[in-house]
Computed example of a mutant assay.
Amino acid sequence: MSTKQTGQTNLFDGGKQNWEKTDSFKSKVDEIKKELRYKYSLTLLKERNWIKRLLIKFRLMIEIRKRIEELSSLKNLHIINH
């Protein structure tokens, strides 16, 4: 069973839209993209069939989108000030 570290929260003042505009969110998105592109780079280099390369790129795009959605998910808690 994994637990969160002490003091770690998913709360962000201002809600989801403001969270997605922060530099912190953008840097995490860049990290995700860099990590996944590196993960798929060797597979793409070895593949000679252009159709399979296209499918690999499509799978990469889907995985990037999925990870970003997890990062900014509504499942995470956001504080909204009115």
Rank of each mutant, 00 (worst) to 15 (best):
K52V: 11
D30T: 04
I62Q: 14
I51G: 01
F12D: 00
K21N: 10
L11Y: 06
D13M: 11
F25L: 05
L11Q: 07
I79L: 14
V29G: 05
H78A: 07
H82S: 09
G7T: 01
S41E: 14
D30E: 11
K21G: 04
E47C: 05
S27Q: 15
G7N: 09
G7K: 01
T43Y: 14
K21P: 02
L44W: 03
S24V: 09
T43R: 15
N81L: 13
G14K: 02
S27R: 11
K33W: 06
Q8E: 12
K4I: 10
Y40V: 02
Q17G: 08
W19E: 10
S24R: 09
W19R: 10
L60F: 03
I56Y: 02
S24T: 10
L42Q: 14
G14Q: 07
T6K: 14
Q5N: 09
G7E: 01
R37C: 11
R59C: 00
K33D: 11
Q8V: 10
T9K: 07
L45F: 08
K28R: 13
L54T: 09
G7H: 04
K16M: 04
L11S: 08
M61D: 09
F25Y: 15
L77R: 12
I80M: 12
I32H: 00
E69R: 08
S24C: 05
E20R: 09
E20P: 00
Y38G: 14
F58R: 03
T6F: 03
Q5R: 04
K52Q: 13
R59T: 10
E69N: 12
E31A: 14
L71K: 01
F58T: 10
N81E: 11
M1G: 14
S72M: 00
K52S: 05
E70P: 03
G7Y: 01
Q8D: 06
F12M: 00
W19C: 12
F58M: 13
I51M: 00
H78Y: 15
L60I: 03
K26H: 06
W50K: 13
K75M: 02
K46W: 07
K26G: 00
D30A: 15
K57R: 13
E69G: 07
S72R: 04
D23V: 12
K39D: 12
L60P: 04
L54I: 00
N18Q: 15
D23Q: 13
W50V: 10
T6S: 15
Q8L: 13
G14V: 11
N49W: 02
T22L: 07
N10I: 07
Y38N: 15
S41R: 11
K75D: 15
L55H: 06
H82T: 04
E70C: 05
K26C: 06
Y38L: 05
K46A: 03
S2N: 08
L54S: 11
I51N: 11
S24M: 10
H82R: 05
K26S: 09
